[in-house]
């Protein structure tokens, strides 16, 4: 990391703070999560304040990726299209500085919005139960923010690889649809993994009944960053609240964190590599 990247990140953050983007995203996140979460506290799904705080990732799971995509898809390609990269390159700024500065700036932006979002849910917990398990809250907020940083890195990577904003948004939308709420990932990956690891078709697997899962099934699920984020939430909550039982053993969860780290690093590296080789004229 260079000081140049920090100067870029600081400018980036200031520019975003002056736009309505930061405040708009925060407001939208609160509007979509707080009432929904508040509704869940009245059901049998959430039992008490500890359960409620451990539930945060479930509430955020479908919003973090779109949030990061909106906040960062223009990060590199936007400056490429607007021509402000030309001005930057008149100063001692390398392409790597640009990518690193963008990741830092946009990750900070996404982190701030998500942190305010978790504060909103924390307020709901306090309002409903009259108490907030602070240690668990800190752990879950960190987890949500870290997951946001993963998507910020993915988004900046795609933004660096793309040659137009349209290309960037199309690629990111594709990722979200593939891994997101439409379960396309399971539809494709489970039969494929069954052929490779099970030697035959994937019959008799019930998503809701772990008793029917072959050994490879939890691992395949965790390759999907969005499911991974949700499935590891109880394991993470267990750090501060041992009473919360975890889904999957330490091996599956360690694999899951490795996958999240891979998502943070690989798309960004590919994006940087493509950006480094690109003609920017």
């Amino acid at each position: 990391m260079t000081s140049t990247a920090l100067v870029l990140a600081a400018k980036e953050f200031e520019d975003a703070a002056r736009s309505r983007l930061l405040w708009g995203l925060t407001l939208v996140l609160l509007v979509v999560t707080v009432p929904q979460f508040h509704g869940m506290t009245g059901t049998s799904i959430i039992d008490g304040p500890v359960d409620a705080v451990a539930f945060f990732p479930q509430t955020f799971m479908n919003y973090v990726a779109p949030l990061a995509i909106i906040a960062a898809y223009r990060a590199v390609v936007g400056e490429r299209e607007s021509g402000s990269l030309r001005v930057l390159f008149g100063h001692p700024v390398t392409r790597r500085d640009v990518v690193v500065g963008k990741v830092l700036g946009r990750a900070a932006l996404v982190a701030l919005v998500l942190f305010v979002g978790t504060l909103g849910l924390g307020a709901v917990v306090f309002a409903v139960y009259g108490t907030l398990p602070v240690g668990l809250f800190a752990v879950m907020a960190t987890y949500v923010v870290a997951y946001g940083v993963v998507w910020a890195a993915v988004t900046v990577g795609v933004s660096a690889a793309a040659s137009s904003r349209l290309q960037a948004i199309a690629g990111l939308l594709g990722l979200f649809l593939f891994f997101g709420p439409f379960r396309l990932w399971s539809t494709v990956s489970v039969p494929l993994a069954s052929l490779v690891f099970g030697g035959g078709p994937a019959d008799g697997i019930d998503v809701l009944d772990p008793g029917t899962w072959p050994w490879w099934y939890p691992y395949v699920q965790r390759v999907n960053p969005m499911e991974n984020f949700e499935m590891a939430r109880e394991f993470v909550a267990g750090i501060a609240a041992p009473s919360v039982g975890s889904l999957g053993g330490p091996a599956v969860n360690a694999f899951g964190f490795g996958i999240l780290l891979t998502w943070a690093i690989v798309p960004l590296s590919i994006g940087y590599w493509r950006f480094e080789l690109a003609d920017l004229g």
């Binding site: 400018k11 200031e14 520019d15 002056r18 736009s19 400056e79 607007s82 021509g83 402000s84 030309r86 001005v87 390159f89 008149g90 100063h91 001692p92 700024v93 390398t94 392409r95």
Partner: peptide, 22 residues
Amino acid sequence: EPRAVRERLGILPEGYGLYDRL
């Protein structure tokens, strides 16, 4: 050595963009 060049170069490019909010 892009940094070495850009440290000592000033450019007014064509088709550049600025940061409208700053």
